[in-house]
Write a protein that binds this DNA or RNA. Structure first.
Length: 722
DNA sequence: GAGCACTGC
């Protein structure tokens, strides 16, 4: 393969690497769709928004689209007449930080003309706020009260190319809303790769026009064109030279470490970012680099190597440390998971600001990532290491070009890159459990789920499974319509349907306090330790005069509050406490009174405990499993043997029955081997076993009692079947 | 003995 070099740029061999060089494919400029070249960019955008119901904006990193576009719209009068401009983000921190920056640029106080809304928090003032930044999930929730989004004149969906579940649902709904509200303008910002597909999706004009066609302005009082406009904004990115392996590697971790060392030896300053798939790999890479670095130092290399790991599970303080610039004479090597792929990395646990990785000049890409897969036949999820998409690889490469021209080393051959990596990542919509999404759509009055227009239709099996799950939980009736009261109540609760169902059951069984705690633990235990949420609880407690009564009523531990008064860095312990108080408010709104089964009872009161367990089982009965006589066969010396085998109860045959389940090692029930269990989550690991997590031991009779529509006693033996 | 790509309401 011919090496291609630009003057002044180094080839891979300059780093002592046997990589094939190739000119920066990732830095190739996107196609320009702007037609009216005589108009300034601002005017051009405003023209398109005026003339088209939908405008797709291809904005490169650094184009300022997120912060600038809403301000242009504000200045142009789109926030007049009491209406607002919404700008949605896939992540909470992004919504907060972008709002803060725009408020600063506009010289107003956050929460006044410019505000934001995320879970737990609404920093906006009705009647005053004109630009509202929020997560796409928040806007979806808002649609339950305001299905046509009457409060907004424009909705801008940012980072649509990430194709998160919430973004895809929102785009489908926005298309629907546009039919009823021709005046609504939708702006979608996306990377090049997804832009045309999104534009085609929103095209409801019956005339086939080339993508990017520019319409004339509508006459006064007339609706805009229904064929979308497409426009690109150029960013400030440096070129990135891409290198491929000449022969493929069987150990990308080792290859990554070798590549990093080779770059380091070359002595060109600039930090290195390595993309790996998980925590283990990141830690292993750091260890190897550390050893290698010490060896190099002994050989008197003047640059010191400073390897650090970066993944979401890392304590907040460690995460923040990664962002500190390396001292002079030190080269940082960051071994990171996918967390480093998105443009902005958040350190929410510490501060409400986002941080970007600065100083990266070299990217080493394993070209793999862990991907969630959902199997609708078993209803179980698995996490598999899979090759990333080309779109994803380009995004990763782009991280090398922020400060100056950079290099990206892909740990695969160019042939493999071209032939084995898919063009784009399968949208989350097509590899997730959709029970929650279907419930949300049903509560928005979309009864015919199967004919909903999706940007990427999910597998039919997944839809059927979602309907079955919701029916089993009592959220849908026999005609798949929202059932009262469970369906409407479950839709109100911002939780997975099984968790919502157990909360509702706890109201009837008199143990909301205990179930609230369990749900908060399951859902928020490892979630972000958001300082602001913490402050909300703190403020409410202060306002109550630091009342112990308030703390008890809100399921906040009074002693923790007192301790927190002294110890600020305990904030990480807070989310679950916060979540319980927040869920309690939701229950109150549904008219469910607080109750407790264990209050006053001894901690070992079996009867009281059984009440709580039954309430939990009311949400989990779909995932019931029975102990079998089999013991896991010892397949190899390394493999753990002797683990008990469980089978799903819900299906007598087929794939679900074939699923081999075992209790996860971490479970306290691992050695107990209860006959009957329910579980909240099971994940397939690389040995093919599904490991049950968050397990509850149940009595067999509970299944027929709680879910007679799903389980009945088999006449011959005790085996349950649907 | 031992675990979790990344988000979100």
């Amino acid at each position: 393969m011919a090496a291609f070099k630009r003057p002044g740029e180094l080839s891979a061999s300059a780093f002592g690497l046997s990589f094939a060089d190739r000119d920066a494919g990732s830095a190739a400029p996107p196609p320009i769709y702007n037609k009216n070249e005589r108009l300034a960019l601002t005017e051009q955008l405003l023209y398109l928004v005026e003339a088209h119901a939908t405008t797709v904006v291809v904005g490169e990193t650094g184009s300022g689209k997120t912060t600038q576009l809403p301000q242009y719209l504000h200045e142009a009068g789109w926030t007049g007449g009491g209406r607002m401009v919404a700008c949605t983000q896939p992540r909470r921190v992004a919504a907060m930080t972008v709002a803060a920056r725009v408020a600063e640029e506009m010289g107003c106080r956050l929460g006044q003309e410019v505000g934001y809304a995320i879970r737990f928090e609404d920093v906006s003032t009705p009647g005053v706020t004109r630009l509202r930044f929020c997560t796409d999930g928040v806007l979806l929730r808002e649609m339950m009260d305001d299905p046509l989004l009457q409060k907004y004149s424009v909705v801008m969906v940012d980072e649509a190319h990430e194709r998160s579940l919430a973004t895809d649902v929102l785009l489908g709904l926005l298309k629907k809303v546009q039919r009823r509200r021709p005046d609504l303008r939708v702006i979608i910002s996306s990377a090049t790769i997804e832009a045309e597909a999104i534009a085609r999706f929103f095209d409801t004009s019956n005339v086939r026009r080339p993508v990017g066609h520019v319409e004339a302005l509508p006459a006064e009082g007339q609706p805009p064109s229904r064929s979308p406009a497409l426009m690109s904004l150029e960013g400030r990115m440096h070129s990135v030279q891409v290198h491929y392996l000449e022969t493929s590697t069987s150990n990308y971790l080792q290859s990554a470490v070798e590549a990093a060392i080779a770059i380091h030896k070359d002595d060109q300053p600039g930090d290195i970012l390595i993309f790996l798939t998980g925590q283990d790999e990141c830690e292993a890479a750091v260890k190897l680099l550390d050893e290698e670095g010490r060896r190099l130092q002994r050989s008197r290399l003047k640059w010191r190597l400073q390897p650090v790991a970066l993944y979401a599970g890392l304590p907040a303080t460690h995460q923040l440390a990664v962002f500190e610039p390396a001292p002079r004479g030190v080269r940082k090597v960051i071994a990171a998971t996918n967390i480093a792929e998105t443009s902005v990395i958040a350190a929410t646990n510490i501060a409400e600001t986002s941080v970007t990785l600065e100083g990266i000049v070299y990217v080493i890409d394993s070209c793999f990532a862990k991907q969630r897969c959902y199997n609708p036949l078993t209803g179980l999820e698995s996490l598999l290491i899979a090759p990333i998409s080309k779109a994803s690889a380009q995004q990763r490469a782009g991280r090398a070009g922020r400060v100056r021209p950079g290099h990206c080393f892909r740990l695969c051959t160019e042939d493999d890159y071209e032939s084995k990596l898919p063009a784009s990542t399968v949208p989350e919509m097509q590899r997730s459990d959709l029970a929650s999404t279907v419930l949300q759509l049903k509560s928005l009055g979309i009864d015919n789920i199967m004919s909903f227009e999706w940007l990427a239709p999910p597998p039919a099996e997944t839809m059927v499974r979602a309907l079955e799950t919701l029916h089993a939980l009592g959220a849908l009736d026999g005609d798949a319509r929202l059932a009262r009261p469970y369906g409407t109540q479950m839709a109100e609760l911002p939780l997975d349907p099984p968790l919502a169902r157990m909360l509702l059951a706890s109201g009837q069984m008199g143990c909301t306090a205990e179930v609230l705690t369990v749900v908060a633990m399951l859902r928020f235990a490892v979630a972000e330790g958001d300082l602001i949420s913490y402050l909300n609880v703190w403020k409410a407690w202060e306002e109550s005069g630091r009342s112990k009564k308030w703390a008890i009523a809100n399921y906040v531990m009074h002693r923790s509050l007192l301790r927190a008064a002294d110890i600020r860095n305990q904030a990480r312990l807070w989310p679950r406490v916060c979540a319980a108080a927040w869920l309690q408010a939701h229950l109150r709104r549904l008219g469910i009174k607080p109750s407790s089964a264990l209050d006053g009872a001894s901690a070992f009161d079996q009867e009281a405990l059984a009440t709580v367990r039954k309430a939990l089982a009311a949400g989990l009965f779909i995932n019931a499993a029975k102990l079998t006589d089999e013991l896991q066969v010892k397949l190899s010396d390394q493999e753990d043997s002797g683990a008990s085998v469980y089978r799903l109860v819900r299906s007598a045959g087929g794939e679900a029955a074939a699923a081999k389940l075992r209790i996860h090692h971490s479970s306290v029930l691992f050695r107990c081997r209860p006959q009957w269990v329910c579980f909240y989550a099971a994940e397939q690991n690389d040995t093919g076993w599904y490991e049950m997590r968050d397990i509850l031991a149940i009595e067999s009779g509970w299944l027929t009692e709680l879910a007679p529509h799903m389980y009945r006693l088999a006449p011959v033996n005790t085996q349950m079947r649907r």
